[in-house]
């Protein structure tokens, strides 16, 4: 009796002390780090930095996806663009490889859909709240007070239609404005709202970058940073662009908790148009600093082919995910340089 008890006690003590020694060896795997170190392991590699993984959100699709709405015309010739946006706040999404988070979404994604209209269009956004908490949509831009999405709280199951003439031309944003606003934004209720000028901008390869992050453990510090939600995504899936072709990036910073965010592009400089409202660039630079809600338009042309980083020069953010790359292709087909319809560039998958 005493012997068997002492054997059991000894074994259980050993289990607590050396459990790792008990498990069987598995087949060896090797991985190489960015610094060039080679690691051989019998276990698993957890590498959100250098491995490609798909999550519940596709940054490639989002990058060049513009939503122009259902188009109709009023009798006086005004173009009407109608959108439906549904808010949800109960789903748990994989927002970074292996990390599952209760993100709050417009139309199921973070960021919400990029809404694109032309200055002077009548915008009609039917908003449905399918969440458990009250939400709204607050658009930046010029509109009547009752369309501002601040005091007209939309409760669970409620609806509201925002209707106004889109103005001024530029890149704006929309986001939920229910208290506590910080939480509603940090959880993912935001998107880009582009108003094109009546006289269109020159043709270009256009894309949207929303600089954001997630505080997955609710300590009011971001755990991951990114352009378009998924950390390190464009580092492993570089954004393909063509040499000598004009690229236009609509960039917006919606990062919560951190005071600033910034962006640095390698091997090139760009014209920067803050808020996209003036047609004259404010700077020719490779570096912009944003506060929350700051946004603008970057325009540039790469002369040399190859891979160029784009990342937060606040390196803490880049080492937690806000880093990506452009892959400039040397031999583009000539048509894509001449015949591009404005805003219609489709995703090129490599």
């Amino acid at each position: 009796m005493i012997v068997s008890i002492s054997v059991i006690v000894t074994l259980s003590v050993f289990y607590f002390v050396f459990p790792e020694g008990i498990s069987a060896q598995q087949e060896e795997k090797t991985f190489v780090t960015m610094e060039g170190a080679v690691i051989t392991t019998s276990g698993e590699v957890i590498d959100p930095v250098l491995t490609t993984a798909t999550v519940d959100f596709d940054p490639d699709k989002f990058l060049r996806e513009f939503n122009y709405g259902r188009v109709s015309q009023l009798e006086d010739g005004t173009t009407v663009r109608e959108f439906t946006i549904i808010a949800e706040d109960t789903k748990v999404m994989e927002i970074s490889p292996g990390v599952f988070f209760n993100a709050w979404t417009y139309n199921g994604t973070v960021p919400g859909p990029t809404i694109r209209v032309t200055e002077g269009d009548l915008l009609r956004v039917k908003f449905i709240n399918n969440g458990e908490k009250p939400h709204t949509i607050h658009f930046h831009g010029i509109h009547p007070a009752e369309m501002d999405g601040v005091f007209e709280i939309v409760g669970q199951g409620g609806e509201f239609t925002y209707e106004f003439i889109a103005a001024p031309a530029g890149i704006h944003l929309y986001h939920c404005h229910v208290m506590p606003v910080e939480e509603h934004i940090a959880r993912g209720l935001y998107g880009v709202f582009i108003v094109d000028p009546k006289e269109s901008r020159p043709p270009a390869d256009e894309m949207v970058m929303v600089l954001n992050g997630f505080d997955t453990d609710f300590d009011t510090e971001n755990n991951s940073y990114a352009a378009n939600s998924v950390p390190f995504y464009y580092l492993n899936n570089p954004i393909q662009i063509n040499k000598n072709e004009l690229v236009r990036v609509y960039v917006m910073n919606i990062l919560e908790f951190d005071q600033i965010n910034n962006l640095h592009m390698h091997g090139n400089l760009f014209d920067y148009y803050p808020t996209g409202t003036y047609r004259v660039p404010s700077a020719y630079t490779d570096m912009i600093t944003f506060s929350q809600g700051d946004r603008g338009i970057m325009e540039f042309v790469y002369q040399y082919p190859g891979k160029y980083l784009i990342h937060a020069h606040k390196v803490e953010f880049s080492e937690k995910g806000w880093v990506g790359a452009f892959l400039v292709k040397d031999n583009p087909d000539q048509e894509s340089q001449t015949g591009v319809e404005y805003g219609s560039k489709q995703t090129i998958k490599g």
Binding site: A24, T33, E44, V45, I46, P48, G98, P231, K320
Partner: peptide
């Protein structure tokens, strides 16, 4: 639980986990 990210000084690092995550 499942261990999915390792970091040093709050900067994400590639890592290996044995026997598994």
């Amino acid at each position: 639980v499942e261990v999915v990210i390792a970091d040093v000084n709050d900067r994400i690092q590639p890592a290996a986990i044995e026997p598994d995550r």
